[in-house]
Each structure stands twice: as C-alpha cells, then as structure tokens.
Design a protein around this nucleic acid. Structure first.
Lengths: 146, 146
DNA sequence: TCGCTATACTTGACACCGCAAGCAACTGTA
DNA sequence: TACAGTTGCTTGCGGTGTCAAGTATAGCGA
C-alpha cells in the first residue's frame, strides 16, 4: 500500500509544480491548458462540452466554468451544432492556438526534463504500461502531450 | 510524455474514487483521513501544524482549516508546547482514534483490492520503486497505510 | 537591552470544483 | 401526435484549498 501513497504524493506534488509554472508563466491552469490541448487535437478544433468533461475528469458544471474563463480570455468561443440544438461546441480561436503554442513549449520541456532526469527510457515505458491500466487512464488517448 | 498524462489521470481518478468512498462511508476527506493517520503514528499522537502541512502537501492555512473541521468533529484537539509558545499541537482524541480505525478498514481494503486486481506483486514492487523517485514521494515514509 | 529576522500560526479574499436542481432539446414508444 | 425518459448544459450553494497579509513568539547579534 506504500506504493499507492507514494504514487499519489509524487503525482500531486509533481503536477502542482507544473501547474504553478503554467499559471505563473502563461496564466493558465492545468485544466485550461489541457482543454486547449484537447481542442487543438480535435477535428475542426472543437469539442462538445460533455466530451471535454469526460476527458478532463471534470463534471459538466466544472467545464462550464472552465470555458467561461477561457471564453472571457478570448482563447475559446462558442459554436452551435446544426443537428442538435442542445450542444454548444467549444471552439479554439486563433488567440487560443497561439497561447497554447507558447505554453506548450515550456510545459513540455519542464515535464520532459523531470522525467528524463528521474527515469530511463526503458523505465518510462514500463511506467506507461503499468499506469495505463489504472481506471480513467486509458480513455482519451488523444490526451497525449507529445 | 504520454506516460505523465496517464500517470496523472489514473492517479487522480483512482484517488477520487477512494476519497468519495471515504467521504460517503465515514464522512472524512482524504486529507482528514491522512491527517488522522499521521497523528496516530506520531509520538504522543500529536504533531505540530507545520509538520502536518509538510506531510500532507498542504499550506499552513490549509492545515488550519483542515484541523478546524476535525476539532469541531471532536476527532482532534489542541495541545500547547511547553518550550515554544508559538506552536499548537494537533492531538488525536479517543474519538479520532476510533473513527480512524473504522475508516481504515474499508479504505485499505478498497485500495488493496484495486491494486491486486490490476497488478501482480512483482509489478507493484516495480511501481513502488520507480514512483518513489518522484519529488515529494520519499519524505515522510511514515505515510504508509500498511 | 534593543532591534532584526525567522518561525508558527491565523484570517480574509478569492479560485476551483462537485453536487443537486433546473431548463431546454432530443428520442423512443404507443 | 403525445408524452415519458434521456441528454446537454447552466446555476446556486457549499467545501476545500491557495495566497497575501497580519499577529505573536523565538532567537540572535550589537
């Protein structure tokens, strides 16, 4: 059970570092960043709120509030769905694309340097394989940072 | 970098499940639980707030608020330090000890069953070894659940 | 002894997020 | 067509945590 505690602590602590870095340097939370990332990978650079919620492990209300902020910042805008009037898409804007590109550079570099410092390539693959089994880790393989 | 995203997602999702279980069955958050656990392992079943903050990866103000709740629930009480008037100890009460014992049983069982379902003993050791390198994971080996 | 700095802790303002409830639009069944 | 159930989304409320600022005590050098 030690393993679990280590995993959790290490994870939250590392993610906190990255999140703080993102916030400070680019004014984005981890979820802001990942939302932009998901949008950038999506077809037409747009996603339904429901799908975003699933991928980000947030509730729908969480997504509503997240997008409120991103819309106010002009990084995302609303889009309607022709075939279903209930859905409103989140669509990446030009500004969002640019902001993501800026943030991505330093964020990925930070992650890479931490991981490459701590683990060999072989170990990283082992980790990825094992941790991929955790519930919630598998779905949304589009989450990748690289 | 995939590895990192998987790790984070899997971790947060699993921890959310456990946390929800704890909250529902015992009225304790993960941090409540771990604070009680740390206290139960500490000498004299008491700890300084600063030390608790370090182990729980919370800020001092976070600890103040966490303990506010635990004190109101009667699971923890304040203690003074003879040699330093600035510190107030958090001391486990009898009620706290009992609550921890109840929660611990189902919590540990839950974690154990998830992990044993997903990983072999060998894999668990590999994971523990690798993840132990993450910053923040090493300190406070007293965190153990087993 | 008198500051000066460091440490332990608290408080107010605020951010983020989940839950429950509610609304509007869609869908399947009769 | 009518209507019951489902789905997508939003909103009010509360919990949890951070940050910055403030208070009180400790400890150290001049």
């Amino acid at each position: 059970m030690e393993a679990w505690v280590r995993l959790l602590r290490g994870c939250t602590s590392a993610s906190r570092v990255f999140s703080a870095q993102l916030t400070q340097e680019h004014g984005l939370t981890i979820n802001d960043y990942e939302a932009l990332l998901l949008l950038s990978r999506a077809e037409g650079e747009r996603l339904r709120r429901v799908d975003l919620a699933g991928s980000l492990l947030l509730t729908q209300s969480g997504v509503t509030r997240l997008l409120d902020g991103l819309e106010q910042a002009g990084l995302v805008e609303k889009g309607t769905c022709a075939s279903d009037a209930r859905v409103t898409y989140a669509v990446l804007t030009e500004a969002g694309r640019e902001r993501l590109a800026q943030a991505s550079a330093s964020h990925v570099a930070g992650i890479r340097s931490l991981f490459e410092e701590l683990f060999t390539r072989q170990e990283l693959e082992t980790l990825a394989g094992l941790l991929g089994r955790l519930p919630g880790a598998a779905e949304g393989e589009s989450c990748g940072v690289e």
